[in-house]
Nucleic acid binder design. Sequence first.
DNA 1: ATCTAAGTAGACCGTTCTGTCTACCAAGAG
DNA 2: CTCTTGGTAGACAGAACGGTCTACTTAGAT
Lengths: 190, 190
Amino acid sequence: MDKREQLVRMAFDLFYRDGIHAVGINRVLAESGIAKKTLYHHFPGKNDLVAAAVEYRNQVFVQWLEQRLDAVTGREAMMSLFDALDDWFNGRDDDLQHFHGCFFINVSAEFGDPEHPIHRLCAIHKQQVAAVVRQKLAVWLDDSDKVEALLDMLLLLKEGAIVQAHVVGDKQAALKAKGAAQALLDAARV
Amino acid sequence: MDKREQLVRMAFDLFYRDGIHAVGINRVLAESGIAKKTLYHHFPGKNDLVAAAVEYRNQVFVQWLEQRLDAVTGREAMMSLFDALDDWFNGRDDDLQHFHGCFFINVSAEFGDPEHPIHRLCAIHKQQVAAVVRQKLAVWLDDSDKVEALLDMLLLLKEGAIVQAHVVGDKQAALKAKGAAQALLDAARV
DNA sequence: ATCTAAGTAGACCGTTCTGTCTACCAAGAG
DNA sequence: CTCTTGGTAGACAGAACGGTCTACTTAGAT
């Protein structure tokens, strides 16, 4: 693996665990065993490394989600969404590392200005996740208004579950969200 | 107002806007015009100032919420919850300052370890908010299992709305959550 | 009258931060 | 064969960090 990718992965690991501002460039270098010059050869500055870490995580997460929803369709796919979250929260998933909340929510907290490029990347990630779920809904339901309305509600439950799991430590949050999702799908008669 | 409270308020303002680790003690002092010795007279260290800011915000927020739910009961109270969020997101509220996401979610992102005292304070805040809403549900519904189930779902929607409003910038998130809440209450036949 | 608590200004300390720089090395391409 | 690319080790600079300290002031309480 090339040094650039090693740096990005190690940076993500540390940023996800301890936060962006709490992790210095020197720690990323020490833990990855890579020279400082090499880092500044690949990235103009820390912010660019942060951006690369965010994009890396985006790619990993979206791929993970697509895979988890791959084999199922319709209502079952929506249930799989929350089952996947449940596995994540409870450490039954190898792909996403130990759960420390949503990396993108965490990064948005540290880069609070919505105009900041790094905050924007987080917003884009959420939109990409939304697109994955929307596609699953769209092939199932004809009414595109209903698709959008259900999508909004399901994503609210998903974000809520992640927050509850991280802030309060409620590891059942995904299952509670799944229950709510079932009730909403029932109410929409789908 | 005594200096201690001035410090806490200014610290909260800055921490909420820019994040904890991005705001140095010296900036809090410069912007509040208070001497460093005074800060260290009232607080052993920065973390204690952070804790005080979290507790201050907790008090302000819970009071705000109680007030917004004061005049209403039953289903209407749940609707008021999301109307209040909508006002907050869209800057129609004077009590909570300009919206930069949930302070407690943001702080939890920077103090990711659930065992950390400051993370714990954030969890306690969420539990206090839950208690306010639970009380509103409890005086309305007899079945305490139903109260807990509805409470969980409504809080998921609330947290989800805050995240969507902040990360993606969806200022309609509260109204979408309100719609989902209505559907859930309908489904529960209350 | 005196003593204490709370305040001011700001120098200072050791540490850490991001980022630059020098000097050297290895391997593949023209 | 030489030259570029990507790499190593680590000193260094300048700023900012949290925190300590001295010296002085002010206002109440005893």
